[in-house]
Amino acid sequence: MLSAYLIHIAIIIVIYAILAVSLNVAVGYTGLLNLGHIAFFGIGAYASAILTKNDVPYTLALCASGIMASLFGWLLAKITAKLKGDYLALATLGFGFVVYAVMLNWTKLTRGPLGIPGIQKPNIFGWQITGAGSYLIFASVIALFIVLIIYRIVHSRYGKLLEAVRDDAIGAQALGKNIYHLKVQSMMISAFFAGIAGSLYAHYISYIDPSTFFLSDIIIIFTIVIVGGLASLRGSIIAAIIIIALPELLRFIDIPSSMIGPMRQMIYAVILILILMFRPRGIFGRIDLD
């Protein structure tokens, strides 16, 4: 019983680690303050769930979820290309909300507030994943791949270009770099992996509804990224473990289960505010948010 519970927490940690690492590409490395990352997560989850419900093979649906999210990333980057700072943050928050509203109201596609139940477990070229243990291994392998790819990207010449966009956009532009393309690409990469995380989530939980992808849940991902530190992949992964595991201690205190949800959110909010006040660079952060 306890081991099943630990495996569940581990899978959630893996999924949030992917989300945090992918958000860090946009926010930490490129300096695009995206408060709508949860929308990409949701788009990926819905894309994968709807496709497999329509008998598309799982592996294809997994890729499609990333591509769908990436397309929306392109769209978001395109609309917000000229915005900076507060305005960019709020426009992306708005994007997240519009996506949520569409999930809730386009009932023909998403079944609205009823959600999509009975999402099947993944079947990869005949290997059927059933138990939570094997799902953990599967998700961890995917996560490892994603972290490796992102690690390669941010430590390459291209990654340095992204950091140049963050630190000195005009300077990079003067050297003939296309800032606009770099921003769009960064957002697309970030969105792609968030979409994959969404697919992993949907097929693990086997039931999704819009409430999982509401605005306020961005606070979990954002707290992880800020606590771990901007532009630090290691930080995001370690922070994902801490931030997801910490509120689980609430389960061992004797409180009604209806109170756990709000208390978790409050813990995240307090951690976020405290870290902004006392250690704005997080655990491993190298740069300030501005």
């Binding site: 606070i219 995240y268 704005p280």
Partner: peptide, 29 residues
């Protein structure tokens, strides 16, 4: 205290979202 550290307006915005989520959930609790 945040302003005294010369933090950017974006940090203040994120902090304010934190406060909002804290208050909404406190009321629910």
């Amino acid at each position: 205290p945040l302003k005294k550290r010369k933090t950017s307006s974006v940090i203040l915005l994120i902090a304010s979202i934190g406060i909002m989520i804290f208050c909404d959930n406190l009321m629910q609790l």
